[in-house]
Write a protein that binds this DNA or RNA. Structure first.
Lengths: 188, 188
DNA sequence: CTTTCTCTATACCGATAAGTATAGAGAAAG
DNA sequence: CTTTCTCTATACTTATCGGTATAGAGAAAG
């Protein structure tokens, strides 16, 4: 593994454990076994390091979400696919998902928030466009895309948080329950 | 307003805006128009300041929650009361609620997390005891207190986040929808 | 008038923050 | 053999971090 990859790996581990603000550049390079100029050579700044981390590693989630939200002829099936996709990703990349979640809940004037806000906005936009499409099949959904997208992500994150904390095991039953719980707020 | 109150007010504003780690003691005392020894006289440390902020201002929420969860003969009514209580509190103290929420989603090794974890654990415990009581009326709930408490808080925070961001107005309809959505996952 | 106690300011502490100037090592290209 | 380019280390910068030693101001108590 080259130094660039080592830096990304250690940064993710440390950010996910103690938070972006609480981690110094010095600590990252020490854990990675390199020195500061190496980090600044590859990433330019601490912020640049986080940007690369987010953009590179979160891209697969965005891509799969774009695919799952591209059609809305069968809304329940698409919803199930979306939940499944998030669960899979969170299980494959627990550190990344925890970190991104923590940053998303940090405050708007926080540097880390602004960086994850980009990819969060992409997810939000994809979900909203899905609900816009869905409303051509379910007229009563019209105009509620934003609220639906937000509560969908909220429900997903509630259940993923439950799984990441070990309170429950991710299982088809849990995913089904999450889908059902979200759906209840929709078809009404 | 005395210096102690000024410090608490400014600390809350700054913490809620940019996060605990990102705010230095210097900035707090400057905004409050005092100097560092004053802060250290009243609170002993930056951590102590946050502890007072959390313990003093979040106590009303805990108290009302303790009352609302004390009996479970009418589960739907209690749930509605709990949602209402959280919405009221978040509307009365939006900065405090945002800050506490951000800290709760920060990571376990973070100092701010450890401080809010105390009151979060109290809320969790009260909700769990409520569901234990409720399971004497609804047998199929037995053993699921932890998951119920977590998803209840998750649902509440999803909707409160929606209101705090201005995406929707807090209204009896929204609260009713939140209660219904959560309830769906329960009586099954 | 003196003592005592609470509160606050000036000026400082060592540690660490992010970031950089300079130089050298090593491989690739001519 | 020399030049060039990529990468990395030593050593440094300035600014800020949380926290404090000391002293003084002002009110209360005797």
């Amino acid at each position: 593994m080259d130094n660039r990859a080592k830096l990304l790996e250690q940064a993710l581990y440390l950010f996910a454990q103690r938070g972006y603000d609480a981690i110094g550049v010095q600590e990252i390079v020490e854990q990675a076994g390199v020195t500061k100029p190496t980090l600044y050579h590859y990433f330019g700044s601490k912020r640049g390091l986080l940007e690369v981390l987010i953009n590179e590693r979160l891209q697969p989630l965005i891509d799969r979400l774009a695919q799952a939200t591209s059609h809305a002829n069968d809304v329940p099936a698409s919803l199930a696919a979306i939940f499944q996709l998030y669960f899979d990703f969170a299980q494959a990349e627990p550190l990344l998902y925890r970190m991104q979640l923590a940053m998303w809940f940090s405050l708007p004037n926080n540097e880390a928030f602004q960086i994850v806000a980009v990819s969060s906005a992409q997810q939000q936009a994809l979900l909203e466009s899905f609900f816009v499409r869905a409303s051509s099949f379910h007229g009563n959904m019209r105009g509620r895309q934003r609220v639906y997208a937000a509560t969908l992500l909220g429900t997903i994150n509630t259940y993923i948080g439950l799984c990441l904390s070990g309170a429950v095991q991710a299982s088809p039953q849990i995913i089904h329950q999450a889908v059902q719980q979200f759906s209840y707020g929709i078809y009404s």
